[in-house]
């Protein structure tokens, strides 16, 4: 069964084309990662699906209905931005407020237990730490036992341990049969959770495939090697992006994203480049995504490489 679909959807904000003739559909039980730089149209896409906004043209369907009808949203769960929780309400009250909109919500205790929030039930949300607020925000998406969960950047700003707790909760909820669509800046998160990846850039769908296929689509290899600082690798055949790393002994550790790793290594040898400690592996989704968005003339985000190195 199709849970959500967009057909030739365009949405503009003044001169900005946020979504440009996008078609996309998600079937029951999928776990889809929505990936793209800031301003790519991810949040606009989610706001259309959750009924917050109307498309300028095209059709958006949620469980076969118009998402702007309340009845269509009974099976939908979304997260608020954690900075926006009503500060004077307690954790328990916010959970109740949201749960009462649904016909068969999870009991308050179950929701809190899934996210380790039991001890905070009487705390006002204004007094929570960032991580606690984030967990509550994701918990609110699941209170109504929705069949579709939309998560916009669910773990932004969380430490590694808290992120893994949330991932586990999401995997469990997905294993119960729910459909999950999430956006993330943390590409590691998409790689850890999603089966299917949709890459959005400049308001268009650049790639839509399984995680492995999206990685394979760009066929990037990451080549690491140490060379003397004076050696430039940019011009060599097969090298797409060269990043300088830390000095290592008498040389510099460089990372090369190679569209054709074989040609690159052959060139290294043929030109007698004095390299050592050669390493090679498949590129991360992050790198695949960087290549996809830059190849299509879309400005690449300014932070992905640092985030990958995190």
């Amino acid at each position: 069964m199709t849970v959500l679909s967009l057909t030739n959807v365009t949405r503009t904000f003044g001169p900005v084309v946020a979504l440009d003739d996008v078609s996309l559909s998600v079937e029951e039980g999928e776990l889809v990662g929505l990936l793209g730089p800031n301003g790519a149209g991810k949040t606009t896409l989610l706001s259309l699906v959750s009924g917050l906004r109307r498309p300028d043209s095209g059709v958006v369907r949620l469980f076969g209905g118009d998402p702007r009808d309340a009845a269509s949203r009974i099976g939908l769960g979304t997260t608020p931005q954690d900075t926006g929780l009503p500060p004077t309400l307690t954790v328990g009250e916010v959970v109740d407020l949201v749960g009462r909109h649904y016909p068969a919500p999870m009991p308050r205790a179950e929701v809190l237990a899934r996210f380790g929030l039991e001890d905070l039930v009487r705390r006002q949300t204004g007094g929570l730490s960032g991580g606690q607020r984030r967990r509550l925000a994701v918990a609110l998406a699941l209170v109504g036992r929705p069949r579709l969960v939309l998560l916009d950047e669910p773990t932004t700003g969380l430490d590694v341990e808290a992120r893994h707790v949330l991932w586990q909760a999401l995997r469990e909820y997905h294993a119960d049969g729910a459909t999950v669509v999430l956006t993330s800046h943390y590409l590691e998160e998409i790689e850890a959770l999603a089966d299917r990846v949709v890459v959005v850039g400049g308001g268009r769908v650049l790639a839509d495939d399984s995680l492995a296929a999206v990685l394979g689509l760009v066929g990037l290899r990451r080549v690491l090697l140490t060379v003397p600082a004076s050696v430039r690798l940019d011009g060599l055949p097969g090298a797409s992006v060269v990043q300088d790393g830390a000095p290592s002994g008498d040389g510099v550790r460089r990372t090369v994203l190679a569209s054709d790793a074989d040609a690159f290594v052959r060139a290294l040898v043929r030109q007698d480049v004095p390299f050592r400690d050669l390493e090679m592996r498949g590129a991360s989704l992050e790198e695949a995504f960087l290549t996809l968005t830059t190849r299509d003339g879309v400005t690449a985000p300014d932070q992905p490489v640092e985030e990958a190195a995190r």
């Binding site: 009924g51 309340a70 949203r73 979304t78 997260t79 608020p80 931005q81 009503p86 909109h101 109504g144």
Partner: peptide, 14 residues
């Protein structure tokens, strides 16, 4: 102006 408001609008209530 608070981000909680758009969230409430996604709940199943008109």
């Amino acid at each position: 102006a608070m981000p909680f408001d758009p969230f409430l609008r996604t709940l199943p209530a008109g």
